[in-house]
Design a protein around this nucleic acid. Structure first.
Lengths: 103, 103
DNA sequence: CGGTATCCCTGAGGATACTG
DNA sequence: CAGTATCCTCAGGGATACCG
């Protein structure tokens, strides 16, 4: 019963996963662009996180056929299906902040 | 914009937090009972996680006045307000499992 | 541009023993 | 029963340099 919840957390685990997913929600991006959008991330971590997201089918990496080759990352339908989760986390995060500060 | 999401994740972070919260959703429990309900957890980790959950106002620890003193943990209203988050994580976790296995 | 390869360090979490 | 105290391990993640 708790397992699916744990699974979900596990997939979203990693310091930059949600930042990357949220970026790609707005538009498709190439590697360098993502690195610029997410200020503190290193190339190494960006590379690692992208691979894990791809393995979990949340994003996809496409290569343009023509030269110069371009590698573009985009969110999959499965990735988009995280929307409700993110919305609830967002709502609760705001609420929690209030709750903590009013004490 | 991403900050509240990060906050929420941060509060739920820790290997046993959700397990503990879900246990306490069903009934109030004392330390030893929780340790029994969550098979792999050690006393040290249970103690740590309980303290963090209490600091974040998700659970409360009450001491019975009469001897023998009993220490009971229960979920707060704020803790209960995580319900929607947990439900969405659960739904998505199930969906994700399907998605991964059908490949 | 789109990454790898190395090296390193910290902190989450485990094992075990002990206490009031 | 309800935890603390100690010690230890390992993996997540940072810094930096390099490659096709």
């Amino acid at each position: 019963m708790i397992q699916p919840v744990t699974d979900a957390i596990y997939v979203l685990n990693g310091k930059w996963k949600l930042a990357i997913l949220i970026c790609l929600t707005f538009e498709n991006m190439r590697f360098r662009r993502l690195a610029d959008e997410i200020p503190q991330i290193t190339d190494r971590m960006l590379s690692k996180e992208l691979k894990e997201l791809e393995t979990n089918l949340l994003i996809r990496r496409t290569v343009s056929p023509a030269a110069p080759k371009r590698f573009e990352y985009s969110i999959t339908d499965h990735g988009k299906s995280l929307h409700n989760v993110v919305v609830e986390l967002h709502k609760w995060g705001l609420k929690h902040r209030e709750e903590i500060f009013k004490r």
